[in-house]
Simulated scan of single mutants.
Amino acid sequence: MFPVNSKTRPGAHAIRLGRSLLALLLAVVLSGCAAAVVGGAAVVATDRRTAGTMLDDQTLEVKVSDKIYGAPAFAGGDHVKVEVYQGVVLLLGEVTTEEKRVQAGTLASEVPYVKRVVNDLVVDNSATVGQRLDNTWLTTKVNTALVTKNPVSGFDATRIKVVTSRDTVYLMGLVSREEGDAVAEVARNVGGVAKVVKVFSYTD
């Protein structure tokens, strides 16, 4: 896990990070798993990451986001979404120039403990709130399909982190290659999905 600096002065970053870590820690301590609603029913989501790795990933999401939005170039007009799993950073959303797209990837890679950066930012500032809501609904549809279709016998599909942007589905998780291929195939057949990108960490 990350070293803790006891001399860090409290501020907006520290408060936001503290709240995020506390929420995740409580979820891990109280249940060891997370509850999710899929297709109108509650299911129990498990995670192959250790509690320490989950906390580290949550910390990295905050640090990478702060690093990018703390740069003068990202003053406005940009929408950068940061997702982290097993130290792998996924950048999604829209920026206004190619220079910003490249810079965001560079800034993310400079954050300590980042293993790899997948930069899928798009140079475009025309995305609407409605389009982003549509992608949230698509994420729900993919999650539902993974749970109901059970792509691999005995595999808990709620271990997969599904992120959607511009009708492209990104799959994150700690899986075997067989599990990853099967999950991707289910996602490809969900209506509205234009493309599937595997951002897995493999166990084999």
Rank of each mutant, 00 (worst) to 15 (best):
Thr97Ile: 13
Glu98Trp: 09
Arg16Tyr: 09
Gly192Pro: 10
Val37Ile: 12
Gly130Asn: 10
Asn119Leu: 11
Arg132Asn: 03
Ile15Gly: 00
Val111His: 11
Tyr69Gly: 04
Gly40Tyr: 08
Asp47Glu: 15
Thr46Pro: 00
Ser201Asp: 08
Lys149Ser: 14
Val89Trp: 05
Thr148Val: 13
Gly18Cys: 09
Thr59Val: 00
Ala45Gly: 06
Val62Asn: 07
Val44Ser: 13
Ser176His: 05
Ala14Gln: 12
Val88His: 09
His13Ser: 08
Ala145Lys: 01
Ser109Thr: 02
Val199Trp: 02
Arg166Ser: 09
Leu26Phe: 02
Ser165Lys: 08
Ala187Glu: 07
Val199Asn: 03
Glu185Ile: 05
Ser176Leu: 08
Ser126Cys: 03
Arg49Pro: 10
Thr139Asn: 01
Arg132Lys: 13
Val117Thr: 13
Val4His: 13
Val62Pro: 00
Met1Trp: 08
Ala41Arg: 15
Ser165Phe: 11
Arg49Val: 11
Glu99Thr: 12
Phe200Ile: 02
Ile68Gly: 06
Ala145Tyr: 06
Leu90Ala: 05
Val186Thr: 13
Gln86Ala: 15
Glu98Gly: 10
Ser126Lys: 14
Leu22Val: 05
Lys67Arg: 15
Gly154Phe: 12
Asp56His: 13
Pro72Ile: 05
Val89Arg: 07
Val88Lys: 13
Asp47Ile: 06
Thr106Pro: 00
Val183His: 07
Asp134Glu: 14
Thr96Gly: 13
Arg101Leu: 14
Thr139Asp: 03
Val129Cys: 00
Val38Arg: 13
Asn143Ile: 00
Ala127Cys: 01
Arg116Lys: 15
Val169Phe: 04
Thr144Ile: 01
Thr59Met: 12
Gly76Phe: 11
Val89Met: 08
Val111Glu: 11
Gln131Gly: 15
Lys161Gln: 11
Ser176Gln: 04
Tyr202Asn: 05
Ala36Gln: 15
Asn143Gln: 14
Gly173Ile: 01
Asn5Trp: 09
Lys115Ile: 11
Thr50Lys: 04
Pro112Thr: 09
Tyr202Glu: 03
Leu91Val: 02
Pro151Gly: 08
Val169His: 07
Met172Val: 04
